[in-house]
Simulated assay, not measured.
Amino acid sequence: MPCNIPRQTLTNDTLVQQWYESLFRSCGRYSTLMHSDRSFEGVLDIHHQDEVCVSTISTNAKKITKANPDADERVDDHHFVVLQVKGQSHFEQMGSGVTLEAGDVTVMDQRYPCMMEFDGMSEQISVQIPTHMMIDILGASCPSHAVNIQTRYGSGFALRNYLVHALNYSTRKSHSQLTVQNNLLTKLLGEALSIDKSFLSNEDSQSMRLTDVKSYAIKHIGNSELSMDDLAQNNALSRRQLYRLFGRESLTPNQWLKNLRLALASDLLLDKTQLDRSVADICYVCGFKDLAHFTRSFTSHFGAPPARYRKDKISR
């Protein structure tokens, strides 16, 4: 069953204790070394579904350490795939050291002692994959220490794009997409670690390319000039290839992009921190060129014009 730990900023002894409890649930038995000259800050979210767990950690701690292997602790019998979102961190495990900047990815085995050292405020998102799944696909080559994955080009770049898209989607909505495609994730890991270049089937490759296209669209959602040619060219596709990719979704690229913008508009309209934002402002932030067109599209999709939709939903 899904398990969600609410986001909390920890500012006193009670909340620090909650930090340790959440850290244990997410990572196992770790100790946290805090700076003596500053207040501790730590935010930890955990989401479970099936065998895959997604964690978001943001902290200004000096160091997090696991001193001893806990072979009897089932919670530790997994690998971490870590995406550094902000700041810098340094991992050490089994004599191997890895330094991560924003956008870097590493994989590490949680069954063994390790140390994570942070430079200022650091934010990471990680996927915990059961070790048996890693061994099934990587065999004896499954890494037992922290390994850095280059993400500037090739399969490492594809892995990073997949993580960014899947994690952004899953932490915002649900983890179904990540869970359904966890086999693709492990295959991409194998490819990025140069274990076996034959892992990716044609279907997996197409899923990966579609993820790249969606990641680009999400990043540029506010650009009202974003065209199908832009989506194709910036992902090394022809226009025909782009439309064939979206055939898997039973939508054209235009329809998918329009639905994405309408979903974002709905979220902003109902966000209580955005109530001072006008409908027109939300229209343009979501990449619509024309308020009248936005209103017609929104009404057709949600059954009410934006202003009334906001009023009716928030008053309930």
Rank of each mutant, 00 (worst) to 15 (best):
315 S>P: 02
62 K>D: 11
79 H>C: 10
314 I>V: 14
224 S>K: 14
65 T>R: 10
226 L>P: 00
12 N>H: 13
100 L>I: 05
86 K>Q: 04
12 N>L: 03
277 R>K: 07
121 M>A: 09
16 V>R: 06
106 T>R: 01
43 V>E: 09
139 G>I: 08
192 A>N: 04
210 L>D: 03
52 V>W: 11
285 V>W: 00
43 V>L: 00
271 D>C: 05
300 S>M: 10
203 E>Q: 10
97 G>V: 10
146 A>L: 04
221 I>W: 08
307 A>K: 15
180 V>G: 02
234 N>E: 10
66 K>M: 13
240 R>A: 11
213 V>R: 04
13 D>P: 02
21 E>H: 09
36 S>I: 14
201 S>T: 15
156 G>P: 01
10 L>I: 11
186 T>A: 04
255 Q>E: 15
106 T>D: 01
71 A>Y: 15
117 E>A: 11
250 S>D: 12
97 G>E: 14
47 H>R: 13
108 M>G: 05
101 E>K: 11
245 L>A: 02
175 H>S: 13
125 I>R: 09
13 D>G: 08
279 V>M: 02
99 T>N: 05
131 T>Y: 09
222 G>S: 15
245 L>W: 01
70 D>Y: 15
155 S>V: 08
121 M>P: 02
255 Q>W: 00
30 Y>S: 03
238 S>N: 03
28 G>M: 07
238 S>L: 04
173 K>W: 03
280 A>V: 11
141 S>M: 08
270 L>F: 04
27 C>W: 05
68 N>V: 10
274 Q>D: 02
162 Y>C: 09
265 A>T: 06
292 A>Y: 02
3 C>N: 12
292 A>N: 12
9 T>S: 04
165 H>G: 01
65 T>I: 11
273 T>A: 03
118 F>L: 14
178 L>M: 13
301 H>R: 15
38 R>F: 00
193 L>N: 02
68 N>S: 06
60 N>S: 06
157 F>R: 13
19 W>T: 06
94 M>N: 13
28 G>K: 11
255 Q>A: 11
196 D>W: 03
287 G>C: 07
29 R>F: 02
242 L>T: 00
107 V>Y: 06
183 N>Y: 03
102 A>I: 05
82 V>I: 15
23 L>Q: 10
128 Q>V: 00
261 R>A: 01
180 V>P: 00
45 D>E: 02
97 G>N: 02
63 K>G: 00
94 M>A: 13
257 L>W: 00
284 Y>A: 01
119 D>G: 00
283 C>F: 00
83 L>S: 03
22 S>I: 02
172 R>W: 05
259 N>C: 08
41 E>T: 09
140 A>T: 10
101 E>Q: 14
155 S>L: 00
50 D>Q: 15
170 S>H: 09
28 G>R: 12
224 S>M: 01
130 P>M: 04
239 R>T: 12
168 N>C: 08
156 G>N: 01
235 N>Q: 09
94 M>I: 01
64 I>R: 06
45 D>I: 03
130 P>W: 08
55 S>Q: 14
212 D>T: 08
299 T>R: 06
40 F>W: 05
189 L>T: 09
68 N>P: 00
316 R>K: 10
